[in-house]
Nucleic acid binder design. Structure first.
Length: 306
DNA sequence: TGGAAGCCTGGTGT
DNA sequence: AACACCAGGCTTC
């Protein structure tokens, strides 16, 4: 007896997409490493992405993927070359002292186009937090309130606003969101009531879309810019956090006296439509160099001890 | 109008 | 091993 297997879906070459940098680099929090592959849920489909000799391949871990998944993944991973013109972006910054290094080191780092609701909840969760903890919170949320769509421990669809609104602040607190519970519950209510419509923000001018988002409780300029850059394809957004601020000061002589709002404006003025991609490369570089420094410090200490 | 405290709680280093 | 201190912000005062 033979089991029919659909031909694997080949999405991109290795150089076009770095799974680790893109899926586990602070944009999205629902992907889990399985050996060399990444497993996550897109809509209601469990998807496993892995590097193979032929390129990046998408598979279902237990069945077959519907044909529509190709378009969904192409969009989610922003693989439509003409959409942004990544090659042109790379050419512009290849000789930049800071970004040139990052572009050579992580040529496959891309900005995602996530579901905006999922992205908004993730970045409301990110306030005064860190990547491992955000993943933990989002994992608890989907297990508690999302529909099961596969056999794996994390195979749950992201809960729609009505589910989260019905759960309410107290349940979100119980799930570990702390003071952010109130903001997430309130955003869910706004979405259910129709006061908040996220998808239309994609076609609005950047500033207008940003103003809409910052009207939400708990959404300031940083979180708004993350949602705009990582889900709504507004590449003129430049989220300012510790890492990117540090990079702008160190490599681009941005005055350290700037407040976050001025820093973001300064970066948008300087990088224009490249802002979001510049931000993501700077963030990645700063984060990993900090990690390397920490490792170096640890090994130096170990040497002293020994 | 700017600046600083407080918020929840898991991660990280000591 | 326990125990500070910190973390990819925002609201409020």
């Amino acid at each position: 007896m033979t089991v029919e297997r659909a031909a694997p879906l080949v999405l991109a070459s290795r150089g076009q997409l770095d799974l680790e940098a893109t899926l586990d680099g602070g944009q999205a929090f629902g992907w889990y490493r399985e050996g060399e592959a990444y497993r996550g849920v897109l809509g209601r489909e469990v998807v496993v992405l892995r590097h193979t000799a032929r390129g990046i391949v998408a598979e279902s871990p237990y069945g077959t993927l519907p044909p529509s998944i190709e378009d969904q993944l192409t969009r989610y991973l922003d693989l439509t070359a003409c959409a942004f013109g990544f090659d042109a972006f790379r050419a512009r910054y290849l000789r930049d002292e800071c970004l040139g290094y990052a572009l050579r080191e992580w040529p496959g780092l891309r900005l995602l186009r996530q579901d905006p609701w999922e992205c908004l909840v993730a970045f409301l969760t990110s306030a005064t937090s860190n990547i491992p903890r955000i993943k933990l919170n989002i994992g608890s949320l989907v297990r508690a309130l999302g529909d099961r769509v596969g056999p794996g421990v994390q195979d749950f669809a992201f809960p729609a606003p009505d589910r989260i609104a019905a759960a309410g602040e107290a349940e979100l607190r119980r799930l570990g969101f702390g003071f952010r519970a109130k903001y997430i519950a309130s955003a869910a209510e706004a979405a259910v009531s129709g006061q908040l419509a996220l998808q239309p923000l994609e076609t609005m001018p950047y500033q207008q879309a940003r103003n809409e988002l910052t009207r939400l409780d708990g959404v300031g300029e940083k979180i708004a810019d993350c949602v705009l850059a990582f889900s709504l394809h507004h590449h003129e957004a430049f989220p300012i956090d510790r890492w990117t601020r540090r990079a702008l000061e160190a490599w681009y002589s941005m005055p350290a006296s700037f407040n976050p709002s001025d820093a973001a404006r300064w970066a948008r003025d300087r990088f224009g439509a490249d802002a979001a991609y510049v931000q993501q490369y700077l963030f990645h570089r700063q984060r990993l160099s900090a990690r390397t420094r920490a490792a170096t410090d640890r090994s130096a200490l170990a040497q002293q001890d020994g």
